[in-house]
Design a protein around this nucleic acid. Structure first.
Lengths: 195, 195
DNA sequence: GTCTATAAATGGATAGAC
DNA sequence: GTCTATCCATTTATAGAC
């Protein structure tokens, strides 16, 4: 029973974060207000300060939670043995993750919030997720930083176009595998080493 | 002298728009306030309503002005005769245009402003600019919509990565020509027609 | 730990005098 | 056409009672 108070508190924090995601999905991450959030969890706005020291602290918690979700998603993925297929799988998981919640992507992958910078701790989670994808690239023979940068930028470009112009569709994302093949072929072809 | 009043008015509007760009560059397009803008041009905030019916109308004027700048830039560009080189040149001009003013790009190419939608008239300018680039793609033998989409998304992806992570550098944008070659080669290779 | 009340700032828009 | 004054709404944050 010693930790039951702390447990209750953790559960409350989790429910606040869950409600925050819901509101962010409705009004965008930038449209999230503490008044509305408090009402959503049956409180008044000042009471939230019992759980988060500031709105930025709430954003940071959301940022960390979102990245943990991504890491869990990657953990739960079974990857093919063939390295290039594994890379495609990893990027596809990432694309799906990004597209299924635009508010979360806004916070995690775009820099939308006025003065928000994640803490080093939370940012570390984001780096860890990116590292997983980069590792898949290395396994597929993409080692040079420039080639990694291209793969990252191309994937992000497809996600962004899809999310902005045709959310829910696949007009852009369906080209992911073909572009991965093009880039990986180019990056691993001997011809390039002669430059 | 009949039009001198109208001319003065146009000049004032132009100076307001110029000041608006300056402030947007400082505080982001979302941080643009009418109070600050009015002060910048030596007025009080309510006086701006003599020139713009609302803040949205001001955004629309900025959106149109920005797209006109892009069109002028493309007009002023001399393109190589060789179609693929011309495409590379057009995309490079676009990339340079996007990177030189992040506030302008925010308004023109990203959907950041809460409830802002450009008028049909202003949106037409944006479409015209995009059409120019698509025409260059067609000239280079990229005709299928999917291939055009890829080229657009890849270019946007490079711009976005560059702007977010290394504004002023070329860590991402330097790969533009290589990616264009890869995509155009793939799009124009007979092998693909057999699918 | 939750509340009421309020501070403090911002920012878009309007009324009406001049 | 420009001003002052004001409205109205929003939102983060704090003080202090309970």
């Amino acid at each position: 029973m010693a930790g039951s108070v702390a447990l209750r508190r953790e559960a409350k924090i989790a429910s606040i974060i869950e409600a925050a995601w819901e509101l962010a999905r409705e009004h965008g991450i930038g449209g999230l207000s503490l008044h509305a959030l408090a009402r959503e969890v049956g409180m008044r706005q000042p009471s939230l300060y019992e759980y988060f020291a500031s709105k930025h602290a709430l954003f940071d918690a959301l940022f960390a939670a979102g990245n943990r979700q991504l890491l869990e998603r990657l953990d739960a993925t079974t990857f093919p043995h063939e390295p290039r297929a594994a890379l495609k799988r990893g990027l596809a998981v990432f694309v799906e993750f990004a597209l299924e919640d635009s508010a979360r992507s806004e916070l995690l992958f775009q820099r939308h919030i006025p003065g928000f910078e994640p803490t080093r701790e939370s940012y570390g989670l984001a780096e860890e997720a990116l590292d997983r994808l980069v590792e898949l690239m290395h396994d597929a023979g993409v080692n040079e930083q420039g080639d990694v940068d291209c793969l990252v930028a191309v994937t992000a470009g497809l996600i962004d176009a899809q999310m902005s112009n045709d959310p829910g569709g696949d007009r852009w994302t369906r080209h992911l595998d073909r572009l991965v093949d093009l880039l990986v072929d180019d990056a691993t072809t001997k011809r390039r080493r002669s430059r």
